[in-house]
Every structure is written in structure tokens, then in C-alpha cells.
Nucleic acid binder design. Structure first.
Length: 188
DNA sequence: CGCTTTTGACCTGCGC
DNA sequence: GCGCAGGTCAAAAGCG
């Protein structure tokens, strides 16, 4: 799984959580700004930016199996993302997996009730990096792919393609933020 | 040979 | 207390 580039000409939606959205730098159609403290009822309402709900919208689900006791690979139990860095993107792409410059390893797939499409779970294959990624197709528009990043990479992207020196690692800076359709964001 | 993907099972939290 | 939903792990198989 190695794509030379991701969504070359696809619509891009951007959801952010944990910090201010640097969206001004990109052709973002819409984004979600989720509060760092998930579980807060606030996050749900905030996430209602454009898409009905971001994967994280299922607050109950988030606390579901995150704290897996000492069975965790690192024994790291977290009821919530440390630092609360979570970013969700919605892209209009045929490809579900997009190469954001990092190496991801799929570790699970699950069918969710909210969506007819299965949700895929990825982990950063870089050692020591505990960033996770969730990929699922928009239940409303299967043409859209919702990618949710959990955590922040503690290493640099193998590609290291910075759009702006100010863009934090939390943002898949290696991606090509291009908006081919000025209005394709809404739906199609 | 090493790494990634696939799939089922298991575990945890929440709601009823 | 039980059931549901979501998330993660582990073993096996496939591919480069």
C-alpha cells in the first residue's frame, strides 16, 4: 500500500479537534472543530458543522474499548486522547486509504451501526508512534471518505512535505490540499 | 524473510 | 443484569 499521492483532485473537508483550525491555509470546504475533551456533550454539538457527525460523534463509542487495561501494547490506558489531538477529514475520493506521508498498518475493521460501510482502523507503523487513524465512508455520500486521526505523530513524516512551516504535525501536511470543485463539498 | 492485510474473537463502557 | 456498539488484539495468509 503505497500511493504516490493521495487525493490529487478530490474535494476536501476538514475537521479539527484540539486546537484552532489552520484551515485558512487550505481549500477547506467545511470542517469540524471538536473539543479536546470528548465525552463532553459540547463536542457533539460542535461537530455538527456540516457533516451530520464525525466518527467521533459517537461519544459513547469512544469510551468504549479505549481503556483496555493492562492488555494494551504499552499498557497505556486512555479514556481519552492524550492532549486531545484529533483531526477528522472528509474527502471525496474513490480511495479509502490515502497516503498522508505516514505508514499505516491496518489493525481492524468493524461495521458500525451508523454507517452501512465498514470502518477501518489503522495505526502508525512507525515505532513508538501511537497515532491511530479511522477511515470510513460517509454514510450519506459513499463518495466521501471520513478519515479521523487520533493523536499526534511523535516523529516526522517520511515524506516531510510541509505546506507551511507553521502547520503542526497534527495536520497531514504531506497531503495535497487541492479543491477541484468549489462546490462539490456539500454533496455532489 | 519481513511486513501488511484479513477476519474472528474478546473486552469494555453505556444504555435500558 | 443484560444486550448493544465500538475498538483492539492476535493468528494466519498473502505479497513484495
Amino acid at each position: 500500500m503505497n500511493f504516490p499521492e493521495i487525493n490529487p483532485n478530490h474535494d476536501f473537508s476538514y475537521f479539527n479537534e484540539g486546537f484552532d483550525p489552520p484551515a485558512t491555509e487550505f481549500q477547506v470546504s467545511d470542517y469540524l472543530m471538536l473539543d479536546g475533551g470528548f465525552g463532553e456533550d459540547n463536542s457533539s454539538s460542535q461537530s455538527m458543522a456540516s457533516s451530520e457527525q464525525v466518527p467521533s460523534g459517537s461519544s459513547s463509542g469512544y469510551s468504549g474499548a479505549t481503556s483496555r487495561n493492562n492488555s494494551m501494547q504499552n499498557g497505556v490506558k486512555k479514556n481519552k486522547i492524550e492532549g486531545g489531538h484529533r483531526v477528522a477529514f472528509r474527502t471525496k475520493s474513490e480511495l479509502e486509504v490515502m497516503d498522508d506521508g505516514f505508514k499505516w498498518r491496518k489493525y481492524g475493521k468493524k461495521s458500525v451501526k451508523n454507517s452501512p460501510n465498514p470502518r477501518n482502523y489503522y495505526k502508525c507503523s512507525s515505532g513508538g508512534c501511537d497515532v491511530k487513524k479511522r477511515v470510513e465512508r460517509d454514510r450519506e455520500d459513499s463518495a466521501y471518505v471520513i478519515t479521523t486521526y487520533d493523536g499526534v505523530h511523535n516523529h516526522e513524516s517520511p515524506c516531510m512535505v510541509y505546506y507551511n512551516n507553521q502547520i503542526p504535525l497534527a495536520v497531514p501536511n504531506a497531503w495535497n490540499f487541492q479543491d477541484s470543485s468549489p462546490h462539490s463539498s456539500s454533496s455532489s
